[in-house]
Design a protein around this nucleic acid. Structure first.
Lengths: 144, 144
DNA sequence: GCTGATAATAGGAATCATTCTCAATAAATG
DNA sequence: CATTTATTGAGAATGATTCCTATTATCAGC
């Protein structure tokens, strides 16, 4: 966690955003939990020390600043995790039973093949492709 | 649209589910609209003739029965469309600006390559992969 | 064509994640 | 230290979705 703080601080400073205690704790908690987490999960993990309204606000600010990334899960709940410049580019395994999400890191070759698919499929649609999102749906080891 | 009704009827009958007027209209509207649509969109498209509560219930029943498929968009809203056995297997182009979703149909070869990626990435994770979801994010022709 | 059993609907209330409001507080700047 | 501006906290508000209950439609068998 220590090693990410300087870069976070720098990035926030560049946008005139303060790294306050609550935000620091939010980031640290997410880093410790190590996967996409909901606001409620973060909230209870921190022992309710950050009010939900503040937590949501912090999550939005940090996501905006590119520190965090957010994903809307198939259960309609938003999950947050450290942005890819911390975690490395990755995709998700989603449990269709319990909604849990796990990270999976593609090899360079896999990612190259995926990028090619994006290119091919967006070609000739009038759509300016900016990124992609690849989720593998199935049952996690607990639910299967 | 006519050509899908018999198969829908058959499928619902097989599960002991009635094809009522409201459900018929819901399916027809979705077929006519031709992409993933929100409950609100369907509701206003049908001129508010189906109460939202009934519409939601119908959408849930039809999704359960495999007639429709649902997707949680990045704007936190659920969109419904005809299941893939009507539309063919496809993926989505998602506009990050306005949230609109468009279908894109992969070639057999593209799909084969994608399936291989799923296999490779799920291997050795303790995860039983059942499907995948591939979204290309970008700007639609209106928003770019 | 009835009748009874069951499924479906309408309408409104309830839920729940998320967002907003605004007064109070903290942080940075000079 | 004072000032300005960002941030927080607490609760209210929002909005999509779900739940509840009485009423209504549908189907199977007579």
């Amino acid at each position: 966690m220590q090693h990410i703080e300087p870069s976070v601080e720098k990035r926030l400073a560049a946008e005139g955003i303060r790294l306050t205690g609550g935000r620091r704790q939010t980031i640290a908690t997410l880093a410790a939990m190590g996967g996409p987490r909901t606001a409620a999960e973060i909230h209870s993990e921190t022992g309710d020390s950050i009010p939900l309204s503040s937590l949501y606000r912090s999550l939005a600010v940090l996501t905006d600043a590119g520190i965090l990334a957010s994903h809307h899960g198939s259960d309609g709940v938003i999950r947050f995790e450290l942005a890819e410049w911390f975690t490395g580019h990755h995709h998700h395994l989603v449990c269709v039973e319990c909604g849990a999400v796990f990270d999976v890191i593609p090899t360079a070759d896999q990612e190259r093949r995926m990028a090619r698919l994006v290119e091919e499929m967006a070609a000739g649609t009038g759509f300016a492709a900016a990124g992609h999102r690849f989720e593998i749906e199935g049952l996690c080891s607990k639910c299967r």
